[in-house]
Design a protein around this nucleic acid. Structure first.
Lengths: 241, 241
DNA sequence: CGTGGATTTGAGAGAAATCAAATCATGTGG
DNA sequence: CCACATGATTTGATTTCTCTCAAATCCACG
């Protein structure tokens, strides 16, 4: 049993009921550790990976780059997640997976994941469910960039990050560290970096948040949630929801 | 074997290799037919459905409505699709599923789908893959509303609809009928109905498309694709891709 | 025909982008 | 320990895109 598998199990248990046998089967998974720098492409658009990537520590994101060089971030990823689980059944990558900070990842072969799923159907269901939650997060992301003004977009994104970090024990008391630049926030939100800066100042001025160098403190959670139209249902943070 | 199941198999075969046995097992699924009017909510945000909904004829969409009444369309659905497959593992709906036109749908109980998946693992994999393609389409939708100007957004959406309809045999020769209003297009694209109108005129003026009352004709496909930054990879229209 | 929804047009306001430059940190090498 | 280079944040001025509001026209259908 590796540390790597522990992060995976921690994350899976947020949204899934797993038996002791299932957990042991997951922890028996062969995982190859890799240490990566910040801003490294783990898997690239067009690749045909034969492994899944488990994020053990650090943060990563998925993004698409368009011909004119403009980039849109699709999702942010935190420890315990497998951001490219879809490559199990979608053989060609349709986007990039990139480290935001230095990361430790674990590579798990598709074959091993599939064998585990066959041996333990409950685990296969849990993995499927994780990809469906991923999908639910994409849906809310569409609403965010498509239907909310800039200030609400940012408020919503901050709440999402907080809740997800909190669920794996990496945030509490309305505080979390998440070293993302304003330029990257812009690519998440479909906004220019300059506008992110102004909107962030607005959230500070309103007394909703304090931010300094990757450390976020939510001062008025209820107000921030209302302002961002945030409702955590789409995160499906309980096994029954 | 029902007509309903035929539509499902047709769609599944676009992106999946299925054996004869698997197909027969799918066609043995118990499906209850329902006829619905246009603009009917099939499943609503907050529901806990016990069935999946197979779209047999007509068009539907998924959407989220915000507190201020603003609505964002998340995806469009065509015959043969199961737009709420995720409810198999995500018990509470986080969005609405709505008919755009009169529709014939088939209800399939979660229990029946799960039993089929256990009996025929290849079918379970195909269903999983379908939900992953759904997810890939969400990702591209994020790019569309987040990173493209209004005219490219519309161009991209039209190409997506065309390609998906073509794959199930409901479009050919750069022509298709898809009865969507400009107001609904606006909710897909994060634009006002007025602006959709102007952008549509621009695409007509450029000679890219002809549109009249739900009938679309693509005059310059290559140019429309380039203009919208469209690349069909994300649709995963081949079993191997 | 008349009615209601859909599309179209116009004018003006607003949100966010762009461009450019200044400031602030942070980490490095002298 | 300070000078400097680099990247991130901040500020200002201007432009562009899209929205909103309002009214007119078009079109299917009863």
């Amino acid at each position: 049993m590796t540390d790597l598998a522990v992060a995976l199990v921690t994350k899976l248990k947020v949204s899934n009921n797993l038996s002791e046998v299932d957990i042991q089967a997951i922890q028996a998974l062969p995982i190859r550790r890799r240490d990566l720098e910040a801003q490294q492409r783990i898997v690239a658009d067009g690749d045909r990976p034969s492994d899944c990537c488990l994020l053990f520590s650090g943060f990563a994101y998925r993004a698409k780059t368009m011909v004119d060089g403009r980039r849109q971030v699709l999702s942010l990823h935190i420890p315990g997640e497998i951001p490219d689980m879809q490559s199990l059944h979608l053989h060609v990558m349709d986007h990039d997976l990139v480290t935001m900070t230095p990361c430790v990842i674990g590579l798990i072969s598709h074959d091993a994941v599939k064998a585990l799923g066959r041996a333990r159907p409950a685990v296969a269901d849990a993995f499927w469910r994780e990809t469906l939650i991923d999908s639910a997060i994409f849906r809310e992301w569409i609403v965010n960039v498509g239907a909310r003004p800039a200030n609400a977009r940012l408020a919503h994104l901050l709440m999402e990050i907080y809740r997800r970090l909190e669920a794996i024990g990496q945030a509490k008391d309305d505080e979390f560290v998440f070293p993302i630049t304003q330029a990257d926030l812009g690519e998440c939100l479909g906004l220019s970096a300059v506008h992110v800066n102004r909107v962030l100042q607005e959230l500070r001025r309103e007394g909703f948040v304090e931010v300094q160098r990757g450390r976020f403190r939510i001062l008025e959670r209820a107000k921030l949630e209302a302002f961002g139209g945030f409702d955590d249902g789409y995160l499906h943070l309980k096994p029954t929801s």
